[in-house]
């Protein structure tokens, strides 16, 4: 389906939940959705017979410094089209409803996004850290994350050989 045709179809079906659309550099269609209406919008995308975006290809988090975002890549076998659904979030209180009910397989993706970005998915059945240890502090993929110098008594820092020549001399490197 052509992009213009797809966009007009999407805007007619999604209504006010659709905030904007754009063409992405990878020839994909970007669909920005209102955070409060994410669950209903995804439900429409998945269940509407004219759309049929039944396949969740990927789920990502993103940090734009002033705001965070979650991204869903959906594929419609019926339309043979791919769309990128994006939801912008507050940096101070990043919270978005979980899509576990629509796509069961998203469970661990959302846990990973929570682990690395600190985005909370409300209604998630088991929102714990997936990759990092449970006692880890902070969310490493955020732009303002500063790696700690030690973890549980294990030294993790290293001298920056480019920035601090004095520190490098001290360690005999």
């Amino acid at each position: 389906m052509e992009r213009a045709e797809l966009i007009s179809l999407l805007s007619s079906r999604l209504g006010s939940a659709l905030l904007s659309t754009a063409e992405m550099r990878n020839d994909d269609t970007l669909v920005v959705v209102d955070r409060k209406e994410l669950v209903s919008a995804v439900g429409t995308l998945k269940n509407d017979p004219a759309l049929g975006f039944t396949t969740l290809m990927n789920h990502l988090g993103a940090d734009y410094r002033d705001k965070l975002a979650v991204i869903y890549n959906l594929w419609s076998p019926a339309l043979r089209n791919k769309i990128t659904v994006k939801v912008y979030l507050d940096r101070d209180n990043p919270e978005v409803p979980s899509l576990e009910r629509a796509f069961h397989g998203i469970s661990w993706y959302e846990r990973e996004t929570y682990d690395l970005f600190g985005i909370r998915f409300t209604g998630h059945s088991n929102l714990k850290r997936l990759l990092l240890p449970d006692d880890w502090e902070g969310h490493p993929l955020r732009k303002d994350y500063v790696a700690p110098q030690s973890y549980n008594g294990i030294e993790t820092g290293r001298p920056d050989l480019l920035d601090e020549p004095a520190a490098a001399e001290g360690t005999g490197v």
Binding site: L131, P140, A147, E155, T156, R158
Partner: peptide, 14 residues
């Protein structure tokens, strides 16, 4: 993985 946040820099540390 020397610059990674999650990797031990050498097993001789433990």
């Amino acid at each position: 993985f020397d610059l990674s946040y999650s990797v031990l820099r050498g097993v001789d540390k433990i």
